[in-house]
Design a protein around this nucleic acid. Structure first.
Length: 596
RNA sequence: GGGGCUGUAGCUCAGCUGGUUAGAGUGCCGGUCUGUCACACCGGAGGUCGCGGGUUCGAGCCCCGUCAGCCCCGCCA
């Protein structure tokens, strides 16, 4: 509510007129009521200054000799993190006493009433730190989450998260998508990540699973004719964690009917552009495209960081002429020599290069050969095999360096991907762009099982094969491309999606190709197959990893900084203490016996 | 399942080659102070060196085990 002249605060309640952080010079002379936490107190004897903090920020209370006796007594005894309510007049600060560091620094409040409404014990971890003091240990931040969440950084992260959720919801709703909730108690899936299981009380020995994603439900919604669906979906996977992986997480999940790949990418671009806009970044559309095969060849990864050049080159032909022992030992069985021509790589120190080579070895490669050129000087582990001319053929000029890896692609690709990232980190070249979005398309449909070599699906078994590759399904499964696409941003995967199989016969064929018997297929995916037989429109969709998006846009170092109550890397909740033993009576009711 | 890093006062950290009574800053408690904003100044309390075992005349420091947090590999259709 806003009325002319004075600004009526939207934060007004029965107990306050404004939030602390909202007060400005324009409020001078107004009598306000505030509620907040005591951030800091500076007691000068005759006058006490209190920084009062709430969600909107901090304002200074000044309790001087003119204040009522009771207010002065209360002010002198206030402990930090106490909740107080205060009523008083907003005053302009004396000219030399303004604080330009503070949004409210032009003013202060002179309380006529000051009441402790929420006394606080001394906080276990500080909410406000001294300059230069590190954050408390993460373990303590998670244990005393109610205090950690009071910090302005965490408040800002969660406020941003809120805005992004609203923006995603509005963007999709405006595109005519319907938000439809799907079950949290679902059916265990035999493939994929481990499920979180929930025992059934009324059906002894049977279990629900928490959804790893709403995949099958959203496809069935398409079969049901809902046309465009989205959900801000909570998903659960019982796998080991990383700094960008939590056991429960949120996806912006969408699916649409009568679409081709182009349509889905368009919808997802609209959402991503809106989210980045909400965070203050203007992003151009359409995003660039890169074939999966090219991404692997040029960057060694399916999520290339396109903020930087520095593509991987194939130097096999050059290497064969040079008779370098390092290469020849590896150059068998169709292996290749690939490498990076690093512009300005002369700045890499011996220590840098050794660290890179060490990293390459750890990743299972035979290591890294290297050459540096300074004028006519050529140095490095394989320097004696090169001249300025042969280096020139590789694109290595004065002041540059070349890094070589030799072996099969499955080894050198991940090595060169990591080496490229590390070179970029160490040389810190200026990025071509701050925000490098791209679509990676034409993923393979199958990949070899690392143990048996048999085809297993690279994504999920409902991904449609590329129509041009259908006839290769039997004879050359690994050559078969999928209508699958990933959204990649600055080297991070934001999400993935695909056009789905809608022909039940093709769906059965693909499942069979994966070694799943018809009976098995029926037991596991029968409800989907039934759905497809009932008249399925062509459809496809996408899922955006929302937590990761918030983390990137908040500039946070960990998912834990954009989730109010996250789990530790051991999947524990330190704040509430989950998981916890169940009492025997509950277990008995669930027909569960614990083995130790 | 495997590897690495960390664990010392409420919090953040220092602690040398194994050697006397384990320190600093901040917070906390008490005091002085009328314009501070990391207020300043004076005084004080505060320690199972994560836990268990071992080596040693002697362990915060070395060894073994274990727990917790974090990072990575495997895993995450």
């Amino acid at each position: 509510m806003r009325s002319g002249g004075t600004i009526e605060s939207a934060s007004r309640t029965s107990r306050r007129t404004h939030r602390c952080g909202e007060l400005r010079a324009q409020h001078v002379g107004e009598r306000v009521r505030l509620g907040g936490w005591v951030d800091r107190r500076r007691d000068l004897g005759g006058i006490v200054f209190i920084d009062l903090r709430d969600r909107a920020g901090i304002v200074q209370l000044a309790v001087g000799p003119g204040a009522p006796e009771g207010v002065r007594r209360t002010a002198a005894a206030l402990a930090s993190e106490t909740v107080v309510e205060v009523e008083g007049e907003v005053s302009a600060r004396p000219p030399n006493m303004k604080n330009p560091e503070l949004a409210t620094g032009e003013v202060e409040v002179h309380p006529g009433r000051l009441v402790v409404v929420g006394p606080a014990v001394t906080p276990a971890i500080p909410v406000t730190r001294a300059k230069g003091e590190e954050l408390p240990a993460e373990e303590l931040r998670l244990k005393y989450r109610h205090l950690d969440l009071r910090r302005p950084e965490m408040q800002a992260n969660l406020a941003l998260r809120h805005r992004l959720l609203q923006r995603a919801r509005k963007t999709l709703s405006d595109l005519d998508f319907l938000e439809i909730e799907t079950p949290i108690l679902t059916k265990p899936t035999p493939e994929g990540a481990r499920d979180y299981l929930v025992p059934s009380r009324v059906h002894p020995g049977e279990f629900y699973a928490l959804p790893q994603s709403p995949q099958l439900y959203k496809q069935l919604l398409m079969v049901s004719g809902f046309d465009r669906y989205f959900q801000l979906a909570r998903c659960f996977r019982d796998e080991d964690l990383r700094n960008d992986r939590q056991p429960e997480f949120t996806q912006i999940d969408l699916e649409a009917s009568f679409v081709e790949t182009e349509d889905v990418l368009g919808f997802v671009e609209a959402v991503l552009v809106a989210l980045w806009d909400e965070a203050g970044h203007r992003i151009a559309r359409p995003f660039s495209r890169i074939l999966w095969r090219d991404a692997m060849e040029r960057y060694g990864t399916d999520k290339p960081d396109l903020r930087y050049d520095l593509p991987i080159a194939d130097w096999t032909a050059h290497a064969q002429r040079l008779h370098v022992p390092f290469f020849e030992s590896a150059l068998q069985d169709g292996a290749r020599v690939r490498g990076l021509a690093v512009e300005g790589g002369g700045a890499l120190t011996r220590k840098d290069v050794d660290a890179l080579a060490e990293m390459a070895k750890r990743l299972g490669g035979s290591g890294l050969a290297w050459v540096k050129r300074q004028g006519d000087q050529i140095s490095g582990s394989v320097a004696k095999h090169f001249t300025t001319e042969t280096l020139g053929e590789l694109g290595v000029g004065d002041g540059d360096a070349a890094l070589f890896a030799a072996g099969p692609d499955r080894v050198t690709s991940p090595v060169l991907d990591r080496v490229r990232q590390e070179v970029i980190r160490r040389l810190a070249p200026p990025p071509k762009a701050a925000h490098a979005f791209c679509w990676v398309v034409d993923f393979p449909l199958f990949e070899p099982d690392p143990e048996t070599g048999k085809p297993v699906f690279a994504h999920h078994p409902f991904t449609a094969p590329h129509p041009d590759d259908l006839q290769r399904l039997e004879a050359e499964p690994f050559e078969c491309r999928a209508l699958h696409y990933d959204a990649v941003y600055n080297g991070a995967e934001l999400g993935s999606g695909s056009i789905r199989i809608t022909d039940p016969a093709l769906q059965r064929t693909v499942l069979a190709r994966l070694g799943i018997s018809p009976a098995d297929a029926e037991a596991r995916f029968g409800f989907l197959l039934n759905g497809l037989q009932a008249g399925a429109p062509p459809h496809g969709g996408f899922a955006i990893g929302f937590d990761r998006v918030v983390m990137l846009l908040a500039g946070a170092g960990s998912l834990r900084d954009v989730i109010a109550f996250p789990k530790t890397t051991a999947a524990r909740a330190l704040f509430e203490g989950a998981p916890a033993p169940a009492n025997p009576a509950d277990l008995a009711a669930l027909h569960i016996a614990i083995e130790r």
